[in-house]
């Protein structure tokens, strides 16, 4: 066997090893309840904003405290606290991916990924609504 082939095999083995060992680091999509079982680990939770409760953000008091209520896929409602400012277009979001951990009664969130109609311009349904509103 040629030396370069051996090195190729070694490199591939290392790469496979690294990737497999990383699978353990991959986060998973959870619900609030399943995230509560491992409060020391951060998870992704897919949820929607509960519009019946007003999000709390008072930058004059603390520009890094933002709290709101969200409902996950299992229908569980949860208070979420985000250390940061309220994201733009937050109230228009159709879906929220929250990254964080459960801490007692609240979900401490370190990052919010939003799915917004405005960011996804080509959304057909939104455009249809826009046209109707012109009437």
């Amino acid at each position: 066997m040629k030396r370069s082939n051996i090195i190729l095999l070694i490199l591939i083995a290392v790469a496979v090893g690294v990737i497999i060992s990383m699978v353990g680091d991959f986060s998973t999509y959870e619900t609030f309840r399943s995230a509560a079982r491992q409060p020391d680990k951060e998870f992704h939770v897919i949820s929607v904003l509960d519009r019946s409760q007003t999000p709390v953000y008072n930058p004059v008091k603390d520009p890094n405290y933002f709290s709101f209520y969200a409902r996950d896929k299992a229908g569980v409602e949860q208070k979420v606290v985000f250390t940061g400012s309220m994201p733009t277009d937050f109230e228009k979001s159709e879906q929220l991916v929250l990254i964080g951990r459960m801490d007692g009664s609240q979900f401490d969130c370190s990052r919010i990924l939003m799915k917004c109609p405005s960011k996804y311009k080509a959304d057909h349904a939104v455009q249809a609504r826009q046209l109707e509103s012109k009437l």
Binding site: D62, P63, N64, T83, S110
Partner: peptide, 23 residues
């Protein structure tokens, strides 16, 4: 954010200090 430093409102053992907003 100096206010955050005083009140100690960091999320527990969070590696990421996201209190980067200042008013």
């Amino acid at each position: 954010d100096p206010m955050g430093l005083l009140t100690g409102a960091f999320p527990k053992d969070s590696k990421q200090d996201s209190r980067e907003n200042v008013l």
